[in-house]
């Protein structure tokens, strides 16, 4: 074990014990430790009452997102060495209601994901459940980037519009809507667009772009939203000019 240590300043909140406070912990420094390792050291050896979420510790499950020195980050991918000599301030993701310590309430986010029907929608699904829908590499390439999301919600913590409008569907869910709308096998575009072409869909967004900056998977939700705006504008004028056309 190394002699060097680093200071963690951890956000503590227990609803029954008054307002939030910061608690400092001294943890050993290791070159290859990530912030999540330091938090687990606290939990295992110093203070078992600290609550936080994590699972895969390899940037796949998306459950370990927190504010690290003020920026949203996956704590399993944020190296302690990048924040030397410290201290490192660890807080729950902003914009989300805090349940306890570093644990935030994700129910609102889950509902927003639900709104955009993040799955392939087929009109003919009932007819033949064993049907195969082939796709060329070019067709895959149209949406692949938007399908890399791990639902870590860092983009929601980075978005000033989420902080202002609770109902704003937000970066990840809108990127996911675009991911399915661009999928050649999908037939649910019109239903999704009824949702995302509302004010609380894409139109609250002012392209601050910070969601794409913090995204650990390079999904570029900001780009997805602007592309949807372009489609939304074309669709708007189509509806305006051909009001008689029937749309399902």
């Amino acid at each position: 074990m190394s002699d060097t240590t680093i200071q963690l300043e951890v956000f503590r909140y227990r609803p029954d014990n008054g307002g939030p406070t910061f608690q400092s912990y001294e943890v050993p420094y290791h070159d290859d430790w990530v912030v999540l390792d330091a938090l687990n050291y606290v939990k295992n050896y110093i203070d078992g009452s600290l609550s936080f979420r994590w699972s895969c510790r390899m940037g796949v499950c998306g459950s370990c997102g927190m504010q690290v020195n003020g920026e949203p980050a996956l704590t399993c991918a944020a190296f302690v060495r990048d924040h030397m000599p410290g201290p490192i301030r660890v807080e729950p993701l902003v914009n989300f209601p805090v349940e306890r310590d570093l644990v935030v309430d994700i129910n609102g986010f889950m509902e927003k994901l639900d709104h955009v029907k993040p799955y392939l929608v087929r009109d003919d699904e009932a007819d033949d459940l064993s049907a195969e829908y082939l796709q060329t590499p070019t067709q895959l390439d149209r949406y692949k980037q938007f399908s890399m999301c791990i639902n870590c919600m860092l983009c929601y913590a980075a978005c000033p519009v989420i902080g202002r409008v609770d109902e704003f569907i937000g970066p990840a869910a809108l990127a996911l809507a675009q991911r399915y709308n661009l999928d050649s096998r999908d037939q649910g575009k019109n239903m999704r667009q009824d949702v995302i072409f509302q004010n609380e869909g894409i139109w609250e967004c002012t392209f601050v772009g910070e969601c794409s900056e913090v995204c650990p998977k390079h999904v570029d939700p900001a780009g997805a939203i602007q592309q949807a705006k372009l489609e939304g504008a074309v669709d708007y004028y189509k509806r305006l000019l051909t009001p008689w056309a029937r749309r399902s």
Binding site: P15, G70, V94, N95, P97, V98, C159
Partner: peptide, 16 residues
Amino acid sequence: MNRPLDRRLGWTWWTR
């Protein structure tokens, strides 16, 4: 009791 804490970005987001 469950009393979630509000931590939304306010109007000063651009100074962060």
